Amino acid sequence: MKLKICGMKYPENILEIGALLPDYMGFIFWEKSARYFDGAMPDLPKSIKKVGVFVNASLDEILDKIQKYDLQAVQLHGQESVEFCKNLKKNIPNLTDIIKVFSILDTFDFAELKPFEKVCDFFLFDTKGKLPGGNGTAFDWKVLENYPSTKPFFLSGGIGIEEIKKLVEMMQSDVSTKKLPIHAIDVNSKFEIEPGLKNIQLCRDVAMQRLQNK
């Protein structure tokens, strides 16, 4: 599994986390978020893919941020339609991925995914809550045992060190979760000192744990 550290905000902290070489770093461009990013982007290692997180943003806004910050992926965290994703795909660079987010609580109708299969590169499953993301709680992963697709996805929602340990144990067992195409884990609030400021030691721990399980 790859590692995405999301909700980055402060330049010095961004550089410190960048030195740990996560596969993805997420920057939230939703103004209502406590982790809203609107600063200068420091230079990061080329191996790190920068992800812009948007909530019901316009096409022009997304394209502007892609160009301004050289984003390699766009994460859609609102009620973006299939048609919007299709139009976005036509207008962004070929190497820029689209990640479409779906929120889960206790149940989920996976039939919702099918129309998005051809217009998104990845899905992301997060916990349904008051906010579009960053609610700090995990959903019941057993719901994913009914995942009908082969499209790889990001797993998000209140993931901390203990949750990652449980996930690794699940994937090393004989349960059906082992067969799920989990592309990356997405961590945020449980690795913070305050919104947008990541705890370097905790992030280092999860980065090392990921390397040990490769």
Rank of each mutant, 00 (worst) to 15 (best):
G52M: 10
E192G: 06
P152E: 15
K86H: 04
M1S: 01
V168G: 04
A73L: 04
P195N: 04
S156Q: 10
V175P: 02
I200V: 14
K9H: 07
D174V: 00
K118Q: 10
K9C: 10
K151V: 11
T107A: 12
K9P: 06
I99N: 07
A73G: 06
F153H: 08
L44A: 13
Q72P: 01
Q79A: 14
G39Y: 11
E83A: 14
F84I: 08
A73M: 08
F108D: 11
L167W: 02
H77S: 14
G133T: 09
S81V: 10
L113N: 05
C120M: 09
L124C: 03
Q172F: 07
K89L: 13
Y24G: 05
L105A: 12
E83W: 01
E163W: 06
G158L: 00
K9M: 10
K114I: 03
I92N: 12
S156N: 13
T150P: 03
N56S: 05
T177G: 02
T150K: 15
M208S: 15
A73N: 02
F84N: 12
K9E: 07
W141T: 06
F102V: 07
D43M: 06
D106E: 15
F139K: 06
I98D: 09
Y36G: 04
M8I: 04
E163D: 13
C6F: 06
V74M: 04
S81N: 11
A19H: 06
S58V: 07
P93Y: 03
C120T: 15
A34L: 12
P152A: 11
M171A: 01
P22G: 12
P195G: 05
A207N: 03
G158A: 01
K9Y: 09
D64W: 05
F191Y: 13
D60G: 02
M171S: 00
F37C: 10
P22H: 12
V175H: 15
K130A: 14
G134F: 10
Q75K: 05
D109L: 07
A57K: 08
S47N: 04
I164T: 15
F123E: 06
H77M: 09
L3Q: 12
S149A: 09
E194S: 13
P42M: 09
C85V: 02
V55Y: 09
L59C: 09
V74W: 01
P195Y: 00
E169G: 07
G52Q: 02
Q209R: 10
A34D: 11
F108R: 01
Y36V: 03
P132F: 09
E162P: 00
L59V: 08
K151H: 12
M41R: 08
I104Y: 07
G7Y: 05
Q212K: 14
T127S: 14
R35K: 09
K142G: 03
